[in-house]
Amino acid sequence: MVECHVVHDGADEDALRDLLAPAFQEVEVKRYWSTQSGLLQAAGGRFFPTTAFGLVAGNR
C-alpha cells in the first residue's frame, strides 16, 4: 500500500490506478480524510471531504 497525501491538486489517484492496472489483477483506491490532529481525526472522517488516498494493488 502506498499512501499519498494530496495537496494543491498534487496527485491524480484515478490516473495512478489506471497506470497500475495492467501490472496487477486488483487495484483499489481508498479515499479518506486525514489530519495530524488526533482530536480532529475522530470526527473529520465523518464530516469533511476526503483529503488523502491510498492505493492497494495485489496479485501481480
Rank of each mutant, 00 (worst) to 15 (best):
G54L: 04
R31C: 02
T51K: 04
K30D: 14
W33N: 00
P22W: 09
A11I: 09
F47P: 00
G44E: 00
G10A: 13
A43Y: 12
E26M: 06
A11E: 08
Q41H: 10
F53S: 01
D18E: 10
L39G: 01
T50M: 07
D14V: 12
W33L: 04
V29S: 04
F53A: 01
R31H: 09
C4G: 11
D14P: 00
A57Y: 00
P49L: 03
E13L: 09
A42V: 14
Y32H: 13
A21F: 04
F47K: 03
G38H: 00
F47R: 04
G54K: 02
V6F: 08
E3Q: 14
A15F: 02
E13S: 11
Q36S: 11
G58C: 04
Q41V: 07
F53K: 00
T35K: 06
Q36E: 11
A15E: 08
E28T: 10
R31Q: 14
D18A: 08
L55W: 01
V2L: 14
V56I: 11
T50H: 04
C4M: 13
A21E: 09
D12N: 15
L55Y: 03
S37F: 15
E13V: 07
P22V: 08
R31S: 14
V7R: 11
C4K: 10
L20Y: 01
F48N: 06
L16A: 06
V7N: 10
G44I: 04
G45A: 04
T50K: 05
T35M: 06
S34W: 10
P49T: 02
R31L: 06
E13K: 02
F53H: 03
A43I: 08
H5F: 12
A11G: 02
V29Y: 13
A21Q: 14
A57C: 11
G44A: 03
R60Y: 05
R60P: 03
R31E: 07
S37K: 13
F53Q: 03
V29R: 07
V6H: 06
A42N: 05
H8S: 12
G10M: 09
V29T: 09
A57I: 01
L20K: 03
R46S: 13
Q41L: 15
D9F: 15
N59H: 10
Y32S: 14
P22D: 06
G58I: 01
R17T: 08
R31I: 00
D14S: 05
D18H: 11
A23Y: 12
P22C: 12
Q25G: 15
D12Y: 02
